[in-house]
Computed example of a mutant assay.
Amino acid sequence: MATSSHKRHLAKTITWRMVGTLDTIVLSWIITGNPLTGLKIGGAEVVTKMILYYLHERVWFNIGIKESRKRHLFKTFTWRAIGTLDTFLLSWYISGSPLTGLQIGVAEVVTKMILYYFHERTWYKINFGLEQRRKKKSWKETS
Rank of each mutant, 00 (worst) to 15 (best):
D86Q: 12
L90N: 13
T87D: 04
L130V: 06
T87M: 09
Y124P: 00
V110N: 11
T100K: 13
A107Q: 12
Q103L: 09
W79P: 04
K135Q: 09
Q132E: 15
T84E: 06
L102G: 12
R80Y: 10
W123R: 03
F74P: 00
E120D: 14
G129V: 07
T142R: 14
L90D: 08
F77M: 13
E108P: 02
L115E: 07
K70G: 01
S143I: 11
R133M: 11
W139T: 05
E120A: 13
G101I: 00
L85A: 08
E108T: 01
K125V: 00
F74W: 11
V109A: 07
R134V: 02
L115V: 09
T111M: 14
F74Y: 14
G101W: 04
K125S: 01
K137Q: 01
F74L: 15
G105I: 01
W92E: 03
L99P: 00
M113Y: 12
L73N: 00
S138A: 15
L115A: 13
K140W: 03
E108Q: 14
G129Q: 11
Q132A: 11
G96R: 01
W139G: 01
F118C: 04
T87A: 11
V106N: 10
K136L: 05
K75V: 03
K137W: 08
L85W: 06
R71A: 11
H72Y: 14
F118P: 07
S95R: 02
Y117V: 10
I82Q: 03
G105Q: 09
K70D: 09
G96A: 07
T100Y: 11
R133W: 12
I114L: 09
K125W: 02
E120H: 09
L115G: 06
N127H: 13
K135R: 10
K140I: 05
Q103A: 02
K140Q: 12
V110H: 03
V110F: 13
Y117A: 10
T100P: 03
R134S: 12
G101K: 13
I104G: 03
I114V: 15
H119P: 00
M113G: 11
